[in-house]
Design a binder for these strands. Structure first.
Length: 430
RNA sequence: GUGAGUGUAGCUCAAUGGUAGAGCACCGGACUGUGGCUCCGGACGUUGUGGGUUCGAGUCCCAUCACUCACCCCA
C-alpha cells in the first residue's frame, strides 16, 4: 500500500550535487582562513539542555520565546535543538575549564542550527552557521581581531561589496540608563506603538528601535539616543574599536539603529547585510558579550564572536568567486574502450585495472560503456575534463589516448605521462 | 502566529467545463577507433489531497496540505 509521498520536513531541504561541492569548498575555506587567525574547531552537540538557551540567549528573545525545537526525552529531560551556538561554546568553555588555557581561546564552528519559523527565502528551520568566538580577550583589540577575520573570510570568498555595519549597545550600566530614558519617552506614547512594540516595553524596549513600521520610525526619530547615555567606559570602547578599524583600513558604517536580537551582547555589535537577499538580508551577525560566560557559571570573561548564515552566504556568493573555480568542481575523467577490447574471460573489463591505476595516481575516473557520440554528451553532463580511450594498441603498449574536451585535441601518451596530464585538471590554484 | 500568490510527467510548461499533451531529461535499439548528432522505439501522471456543483471537472466552489513571497524575527 502506497502512502502519501514523503518529503523533507517543512523548512528543511536536501542539498544535492553539484551544490554540495560548493558547500564543501566553502567549508574547506573556513578551515583554512580561520586557522590563519589561530582559530581551532569546536564541535558541540546539536542538542543541549533547554536551560542553556533560556539562560544564555535570554527568556525575552524571540528565539527562546517562540522558535525553539524543544522536547522531553525518555528520561524526562528537557532538550532543545540548538538555535545558535554561542551559548554552547561558552558552556563548553566553562565545562572544560578553558579559562586555564592561554587566553584568549579562539574557537570556530560550523554546522546546522534549528529555529521553528515560517520558511521563506533565506530562512530555513534547519539552517547552517559558520561562527567564531574569541573568549578571554581584552576589549576593543579583540573586537577588531574578530572583525578582521570576518572581513578576510568574506573577501577570500570573492565578496567585494559587503560592508560591516557597526554599533554599540553599551555596557550594562549604559543600557540601564538608556532603558530608563527610552521608557520615559515611549510610555506616554504607548498608544502610538504597535501591539508587538507595546509588549516589548515590558520585556526588551531596546528592540523597539529596529521596528520597520513607518509610524513607529517617525516616533523613534525623536526618541532619546543610546549614544547619549553611554558610560565613559563604553564611549571609549566604541571609539577605540573605530580608531583601530580606521587605522587598519577596514571599511565599516556606523548604524546607530542596529540592535541585536540576542540578550547577551554588550558594547560592540555588528552585522553584514547583502542587498541581493530579499527581506532576510543579514549574512552575518555578531558582537561582544561580557556577561555570558559568567552567567553560565564561569569566571567573568570578555568575549566576542560572530555567526555567518551559510545558506544565505551561498545564495549570494559572487559569480566570480574563486570557490567557483572549475578545478574544484570537475567531474571524473571518463575511461572508455576504443573499438572492441579482448575479453579477459572472467567477466572483468580490462578497463578496470587501468581505472584503478589512474585513481592511485590521484586522477578521478569512472569507466563507461558508452560509445561516441553518446560518450561526449556524457562527458559534458558529468563535467569531465577529458576522455581516456583504451584500444588494443594502447593496451599492448601501456598507453592512453586522451581527448581533452576543451581543446578537442587528442594525444596518445605513455600511462605515467597521461596520468600527470589528467591530474593537472584537478589541482587547485591557491 | 498573520497575509497574499502558486500547485499538471524528474524539469520547463500546454490543454474554451468535453479522449491529459509537448520539449528537455531518462531507458533500449541502429551506429564496432571518436564530437556535442541523427533515426527508431520505450517508460513516464490517482492533474498536491479530500469533498462539492455538473450528464461530464486539470478547468468552477469549499476545505486541507505543500511550496513561494511578505509581515514578525533573524543567519
Amino acid at each position: 500500500m502506497k502512502g502519501r509521498a514523503l518529503r523533507a520536513p517543512k523548512g528543511t531541504r536536501d542539498l544535492l550535487p553539484p551544490a554540495t561541492g560548493l558547500w564543501a569548498a566553502v567549508e574547506a575555506e573556513v578551515h583554512r582562513i580561520f586557522a590563519l587567525y589561530g582559530y581551532r574547531e569546536i564541535r558541540t552537540p546539536i542538542l543541549e539542555e533547554t536551560e542553556l538557551f533560556a539562560r544564555g540567549v535570554g527568556e525575552a528573545t524571540d528565539i527562546v520565546g517562540k522558535e525553539m525545537y524543544t522536547f522531553t526525552d525518555r528520561g524526562g529531560r528537557s532538550l532543545t535543538l540548538r538555535p545558535e551556538s554561542t551559548a554552547a561554546v561558552c558552556r563548553a568553555y566553562v565545562e572544560h575549564g578553558m579559562q586555564t588555557l592561554p587566553q584568549p581561546v579562539r574557537l570556530y564552528y560550523l554546522g546546522p542550527q534549528f529555529r521553528y519559523e515560517r520558511p521563506q527565502r533565506g530562512r530555513y528551520r534547519q539552517f547552517h552557521q559558520i561562527g567564531a568566538e574569541l573568549l578571554g580577550g581584552r576589549g576593543p583589540a579583540s573586537d577588531v581581531e574578530i572583525l578582521l577575520l570576518l572581513v578576510a573570510f568574506l573577501r577570500r570568498l570573492g565578496f567585494a561589496e559587503l560592508t560591516v555595519l557597526l554599533n554599540t549597545v553599551g555596557d550594562a550600566p549604559s543600557r540601564a540608563a538608556y532603558r530608563a530614558a527610552l521608557l520615559a519617552y515611549l510610555e506616554p506614547r504607548a498608544a502610538e506603538l504597535g501591539e508587538e512594540s507595546r509588549r516589548r516595553l515590558g520585556t526588551n524596549p531596546l528592540r523597539i528601535l529596529d521596528s520597520k513600521d513607518p509610524a513607529e520610525q517617525e516616533l523613534l526619530a525623536a526618541a532619546p539616543r543610546l549614544a547619549d547615555h553611554l558610560t565613559p567606559a563604553s564611549r571609549e570602547h566604541f571609539a577605540a574599536v573605530r580608531a583601530h578599524l580606521d587605522r587598519l583600513g577596514v571599511a565599516y558604517r556606523v548604524e546607530p539603529r542596529l540592535v541585536r536580537g540576542l540578550d547577551y551582547y554588550t558594547n560592540t555589535v555588528f552585522e553584514v547585510v547583502s542587498g541581493d537577499l530579499g527581506a532576510q538580508n543579514a549574512i552575518c551577525g555578531g558582537g561582544a558579550y561580557e556577561g555570558l560566560v559568567e552567567e553560565l557559571g564561569g569566571p567573568p570573561t570578555y568575549a566576542v564572536g560572530f555567526a555567518i548564515g551559510a545558506d544565505r552566504l551561498l545564495e549570494v556568493l559572487p559569480a566570480g568567486s574563486p570557490l567557483r573555480a572549475p578545478g574544484r568542481h570537475r567531474g571524473p575523467v571518463l575511461l572508455a574502450a576504443a573499438g572492441r577490447l579482448p575479453e579477459s574471460g572472467d567477466g572483468v573489463s580490462p578497463l578496470t585495472p587501468i581505472a584503478e591505476r589512474l585513481r592511485s595516481e590521484g586522477v578521478p575516473v569512472v569507466e563507461t560503456g558508452a560509445r561516441a557520440p553518446r560518450l561526449f554528451q556524457l562527458a559534458e553532463q558529468l563535467g569531465a575534463p577529458a576522455l581516456a580511450f583504451v584500444g588494443e594498441e594502447e593496451l599492448a603498449r601501456g598507453e592512453l589516448s586522451l581527448r581533452e574536451l576543451g581543446s578537442r585535441e587528442q594525444t596518445r601518451l605513455p600511462f605515467a605521462e597521461a596520468a600527470d596530464r589528467l591530474r593537472r585538471y584537478y589541482e587547485e590554484q591557491p
